[in-house]
Design a protein around this nucleic acid. Structure first.
Lengths: 139, 139
DNA sequence: CTGGGTGCAAAGTATTTGCATGAAC
DNA sequence: GTTCATGCAAATACTTTGCACCCAG
């Protein structure tokens, strides 16, 4: 739990049990919807309100501790913004996988062609994952 | 207008004036929010309802005639799904530009590393565009 | 202490649905 | 003529806000 206390300190946010449990939920799940976080937290604290989660996720996004990911045809998910990665979304089983890939070449091409600076990138690939491909092959 | 009639025929959708004007609005603007489409259409038909737009955009998405684009910190926008491209979103002026770029190398790397098939890709880059860079340089 | 955080209830906003009417094929 | 689309109103879903109370620093 010290880990989460330090994250909050780093971003100048007061420590509260609610905030610690939101961060734990996000860290355990890697990605979670507002509803998923809420259902995690209600288990240990039945009066935990959705409002608190919306407000804290909002604050954490302002402080760049947490990022929002908007996926095609899905509810938004939230994740701790630790590292830069892209999302692989399996169309068959629904699993979301983080992928770490160097896109420097592609980004450089865009910079050169469009004369822009690239501040951030947001990439989601709809895929059929390894496991689903194997299952399909066995039919 | 024949163009839009044919688009609807191609996707087995009945021709209605509402659908034609939705397609014209999308085609003219390249990207539009539900509200923007609505405000375009109310000009010529004051009783045009939001419901009709939601329902038709929904149908057109099911039929893959139209795609939804979810952008960071913005309302969803819709576009006619004619070609494959990525979106450049200027953080300074808010402009959205379509970019055509070959990402085969990057996608191939992901296929090889994660053993998946890639069905679709959804890429938005937050940028500072050429014009905004130039203005900044002049300060 | 004291300012900010929390929970509840209520208000906003966004989107969907039921149903009677109207238009396309 | 039939079938499907439309517009309205109402319902639902999602998110934000106001306010009294409470807790961390």
């Amino acid at each position: 739990m010290d880990k989460y206390i330090n994250w909050l300190k780093d971003y100048d946010m007061k420590t509260t049990t609610q905030r610690l449990s939101i961060l734990k939920s996000l860290d355990d799940r890697k990605h979670a919807t507002i509803e998923e976080i809420h259902s995690d937290l209600v288990e240990h604290n039945p009066t935990m309100s959705l409002t608190t989660i919306y407000r804290n996720i909002g604050e954490m996004m302002k402080n760049l501790l947490v990022s929002e990911v908007k996926l095609p045809k899905r509810k938004n998910i939230y994740e701790v913004s630790k590292d830069s990665h892209i999302h692989l979304l399996c169309e068959t089983c629904g699993k979301i996988e983080d992928a770490y890939i160097d896109m420097t070449d592609t980004l450089q091409k865009i910079k050169n062609r469009y004369f822009c600076d690239i501040l951030d990138n947001d990439v989601t690939l709809s895929i059929t994952c390894k496991e689903c491909k194997e299952k399909m092959g066995n039919l």
